[in-house]
Amino acid sequence: MRFEGKTVVVTGAASGIGRATALKFAAEGARVYAADIDEQGLAALAATTNGSIATARCDVTRTEDIKALMDRAAAETGGIDVVFNNAGAGGDRATIDEIEPAGWDRTMDLLLRSVAFGIRYAVPHMIGRPGAAIVNTSSVAAVGPGYSPTAYAVAKAGVLHLTKCAAADLAKHQIRVNAVQPGFINTNIFTRSLDMPAELEAQAKGAIAMMSQSAQPVARGGQPDDIADAVLFLASDAAGFVTGTSLIVDGGITIGPRHSWDPTMPGMFDALQQMADAGQPA
Rank of each mutant, 00 (worst) to 15 (best):
G158S: 13
D65Y: 07
I66S: 07
G103P: 05
V115Q: 13
I134E: 08
G244K: 11
G244A: 11
N178S: 14
I185K: 08
A228P: 04
A157G: 15
A153N: 12
M196A: 09
I134K: 05
V242C: 10
G128C: 05
N136H: 11
E98R: 15
A122Y: 03
Y121G: 01
K24C: 00
P263A: 10
D226S: 13
K6D: 00
T77W: 01
Q273K: 13
T63M: 11
G18R: 04
I17E: 10
C58I: 04
F25G: 00
I99Y: 09
S212D: 14
T61N: 06
V218D: 10
G267E: 04
G183E: 15
R57K: 13
M211L: 15
L247T: 10
M265P: 00
A46K: 08
F3M: 01
L162N: 12
T7A: 08
I96Q: 11
D109S: 14
P182V: 09
A179I: 12
F84H: 06
G158P: 13
L111Q: 09
A13T: 01
T243D: 09
A102C: 02
D225Q: 11
V180D: 08
Y147V: 02
A271M: 14
T163A: 13
A47D: 11
W104F: 14
T48H: 01
T254A: 04
T243V: 12
N85P: 09
T48D: 03
A20D: 11
A122F: 08
A141E: 10
M70T: 14
A20C: 11
D59R: 02
D109G: 05
V180N: 06
A54V: 03
Q174G: 02
G256A: 07
A282H: 12
A54G: 04
V83P: 04
Q280V: 09
E28R: 01
D65N: 14
F3R: 00
W261P: 07
S15H: 11
P145Y: 04
S214W: 07
V231R: 05
M126H: 04
A89Q: 07
D262C: 07
Q203G: 01
